[in-house]
Design a protein around this nucleic acid. Structure first.
Length: 359
DNA sequence: CGGCAGTACTG
DNA sequence: CAGTAC
DNA sequence: GCCG
């Protein structure tokens, strides 16, 4: 008798949760993961024959290394060490204070793994926007803020600067920072470089932006897939209805539809039918309404089968979808993952297991 | 057998 | 366009 | 790899 998905899910939930990283322990994926620790790095480096960071430093096989990637190499260990939650907090507090000194009406929020309540953070994601009720906006704030933070010694190397020419309210900055000095601490004390992203969005898009940048990636993909199945489309700007897709090519949108929710996370989650008890909680509990990563385990392969997709993991979501993390294979392959989501009515059984709510 | 999230940016 | 970041 |  074949095991059903549900049998396997129950077994994993009962025997303990695994991380999807467990499924990535093949040599090529490990090396590609190593190279992806450098901002903007290409899978092409692996394809070109590079296998170590020194191969990259020595420009083996005639590969090109951009200025930004040199920064990534220089600070490789710093950038790829997760920071304690407390350190992310110190950096965020300093940035928020600085920003509010420019305009006390700015909306400044930290997103990413910090907002998901994680005890360590791989980077810092900061959202900046501003209520428009007094007719003003956050236009022009980001460059000024970045200059101040640089003077304060918080922001260091730039990886990508904001392009304000398209929409001055929508900008992205990526760079490296260090935490502010603590009380009585001299400038000689060692502080690791940390990855930091700033993004600004129009005030009305803040809810959708919060969902997207709070993540994680698999959660977003499953949520978007659910939106599609319900006839909507979700992106970092908002939830749209009336999207018409080509019957032959599903991904081709014939009609963009119209925005029905974007200002708050709650309205978007509510329309999508996502359990939202956590909205009454503080950020550290946010993760509890979010996916619990589990794997189907040894019964499923991560091997390179004849298919161009290889299974990595199976997160379980509170909104009633399972998603299989898949990796696209084949040459020229991209290591960017894909998600397969399955509508699973029986998932209600999973919800009741305490695993989903432990932290 | 098609589909697997959606968008922005780079070369 | 392919590749990559989020 | 697996679902519709």
């Amino acid at each position: 008798m074949e095991l059903t998905h549900l049998d396997q899910i129950k077994e994993i939930l009962e025997t303990g949760e695994l991380r999807r990283i467990e499924f990535e322990k093949t040599e090529d994926i490990e090396i590609i993961n190593l190279f992806q620790g450098i901002y903007g790095v290409a899978y092409a480096w692996y394809a070109a024959g590079c296998r170590t960071l020194d191969d990259i430093r020595n420009k083996k096989a005639g590969i090109k290394v951009s200025e930004v990637q040199e920064i990534g190499l220089q600070h490789y260990d710093d950038i790829n060490t997760r920071m304690p939650r407390e350190e992310a907090h110190e950096i965020f507090v300093a940035i928020k204070e600085t920003a509010l000194s420019l305009d006390p009406k700015l909306f400044i929020e930290i997103m990413g793994s910090y907002r998901r309540g994680k005890s360590t953070c791989g980077d810092i994601d900061i959202l900046i926007t501003r209520s428009t009720e007094d007719g003003k906006t956050h236009e022009g704030i980001l460059p000024t803020l970045l200059n101040m933070l640089q003077t304060m010694g918080i922001i260091h190397e730039h990886l990508s600067l904001p392009d304000l020419s398209v929409d001055p309210l929508e900008a992205v900055y990526r760079g490296l920072c260090v935490r502010p000095l603590r009380e009585g601490e001299g400038p000689e004390s060692k502080r690791l470089r940390r990855r930091i992203d700033f993004l600004t969005v129009p005030w009305i898009n803040r809810g959708a932006a919060l969902i997207y940048y709070t993540g994680d990636d698999i959660f977003n993909r499953s949520l978007r897939l659910k939106a599609n199945k319900m006839g909507y489309s979700l992106n970092q700007k908002g939830l749209s209805a009336g999207v018409v897709r080509s019957p032959t090519r599903y991904t081709v949108k014939l009609c963009d539809g119209h925005m029905i929710a974007s200002e708050t996370e709650e309205e978007i989650f509510r329309i999508l039918g996502v359990y939202s008890a956590a909205f009454h909680q503080v950020s550290a509990d946010y993760e509890c309404s979010r996916p619990s990563k589990v794997c189907l385990g040894k019964n499923l392969t991560n091997g390179y089968g004849p298919s161009k997709w290889s299974m990595l993991c199976l997160p379980v979501y509170p909104h009633g979808l399972l998603a299989l993390g898949l990796r696209k294979l084949g040459a020229p392959a991209t290591p960017q993952g894909r998600v397969k989501a399955i509508q699973a009515p029986s998932l209600n059984i999973v919800y009741t297991l305490p695993t989903l709510y432990k932290r």
